[in-house]
Design a protein around this nucleic acid. Structure first.
Lengths: 123, 123
DNA sequence: TACTCTAGATACCTTAAGGTGATATAGGCA
DNA sequence: TGCCTATATCACCTTAAGGTATCTAGAGTA
């Protein structure tokens, strides 16, 4: 395989965790193993297709592990792989910056309700 | 203005630095003020339109400052704003992870040439 | 005069990312 | 017998992100 030409290494990172959903999924997984249905509940706007598609790609890149339980109805869990845990610092920083940014941009208009919902989902 | 509903704060961050180019631009700016033409040289694949478009959006979000010199031919420089410097930790981490990832994925096949080009551009 | 150089705008077009809705499993259970 | 469950895949469609080509300004310069 030929190394792809990146002009700057951050492009390699973006290829792995870029896009609309991957960081969101990974942030949730930093709080522990999750079932597919849990992820769908945690990320209401994501569609079934996008969820499994993003999970597949993350799995291919070795960021997450897919754990299949042989039972009916099916049960599948996803967790950060050892390699994926190397992203924890970045993911936490992204979340933290986002919170600060929301405070800055919306200030008081950023309702307490929002925050409680947000924290609930972070736990 | 109504606060947008985010399910998790990382979404707010992605709205500011998401997309194909913004992190790349910002990474370059962490190494100092840059003229438009310098950025275009540093990011050969970006088109004129995308560059100015992304720069405008970053400026609107208060991440970068646009410095216009009143002279002909025009001279415009971009630099991280004080607020933008708050992203330095994240940007550095993204770059660092990307380098490690390239090593892991490509190993020896990831040529020294690539690395030197890469480092050159990081300086 | 004609052409350079830098930064940018704008209209239009292409493509890939993302979304919708239907269908497939395969055992448990009413 | 037929419906439930959770997970996933497929074909198709939409939309927004990104790309191309052409245009501007205004002074220097060959």
């Amino acid at each position: 395989m030929q190394a792809k030409k990146y002009n700057i290494s951050v492009e390699a990172t973006l290829e792995v965790i870029g896009g609309k959903w991957k960081c969101v999924i990974l942030c949730h997984l930093t709080h522990g193993k999750k079932r597919t249905s849990e992820l769908r509940r945690l990320i209401p706007q994501i569609t079934q297709k996008m969820l499994t598609q993003q999970l597949r790609e993350l799995e291919e890149d070795g960021i997450i592990n897919r754990i299949v339980y042989n039972q009916v109805p099916p049960k599948v869990e996803y967790e950060l792989s050892d390699y994926g845990w190397g992203l924890k610092g970045i993911l936490d920083a992204l979340c933290a910056w986002g919170e600060k940014h929301l405070d800055k941009v919306y200030g008081d208009k950023y309702s307490v309700l929002e925050k409680s919902v947000l924290n609930e989902q972070l736990d």
